[in-house]
């Protein structure tokens, strides 16, 4: 038996036996459980006189949610990736560099990025609207672990992209490579990653405040 299961069953038994919450916390504290653990364990049961104790809704992992959020995550990643690629090719064209020449190879890349954006961006937008609507209709969805995980993975990747971009700008500056073209490309990465980062951070912070 895991210790968290032991804790859960102890709290259930104690509440069932009619002990007060303060007594239970004091006993657990004495046994060495930390305050957040005690709060979580007690928080799993609704306060009130009803016996046996009434469980509170818990975060759940459903296959349907994993599918929807997984698809949304991939759609967002593809959108961000191809948006950046396409913008970089456009920058190559708009800010000519004598060292590199624009050729039909980059045209093929651009066509692929356009095709990917046409497929994945509407998909992301649609899934995002859907997810927000279902959260509004059912607050329990907010507690979904799947949603939280994909949100934080997105935040993590966006943060890594921002940090990598910053390192590269400093490196290029020291190396004397800080051309207009380079600055524009670094701004594209910062813009795309920053937009995603701040959007998802706002989303995740609201979750944290609510629970």
């Amino acid at each position: 038996m895991k210790s968290s299961d032991q804790l859960a069953s102890f709290v259930y038994d104690a509440l069932n036996a009619g002990r007060s919450r303060d007594d239970i916390s004091a006993a657990l504290e004495q046994a060495g459980w930390s305050t957040p653990e005690i709060r979580d364990a007690l928080g799993n049961w609704a306060e009130g006189e009803f016996s046996p104790p009434v469980p509170r809704p818990r975060p759940f992992v459903s296959a349907r949610e994993a599918f929807l959020y997984g698809l949304m995550f991939v759609a967002l990643a593809m959108t961000a990736w191809h948006l950046s690629t396409l913008l970089m090719h456009l920058i190559d064209q708009w800010i000519p560099d004598l060292d590199e020449k624009y050729s039909y190879y980059s045209k093929r890349d651009m066509r692929f990025s356009i095709a990917s954006l046409i497929v994945f961006f509407p998909l992301f937008a649609m899934l995002n609207v859907r997810a927000n609507r279902s959260i509004k209709a059912n607050a329990g969805r907010r507690r979904s672990d799947v949603r939280k995980w994909f949100g934080y993975i997105t935040l993590f990747l966006a943060a890594i992209a921002l940090l990598g971009d910053l390192i590269y700008v400093i490196y290029a500056l020291l190396n004397g490579d800080l051309t207009a073209r380079f600055i524009a490309k670094a701004a594209v990465v910062a813009g795309v990653a920053g937009l995603i980062f701040f959007y998802f951070r706002a989303d995740m912070t609201e979750d944290a405040n609510e629970s």
Binding site: T79, L86, L87, H89, S113, F121
Partner: peptide, 17 residues
């Protein structure tokens, strides 16, 4: 905002290639 940026980029891309 993202929608407008993506649409503008697609348009610029098609115009360019």
């Amino acid at each position: 905002v993202i929608g407008i940026i993506v649409l503008a980029t697609i348009a610029a891309g098609i115009w360019s290639v």
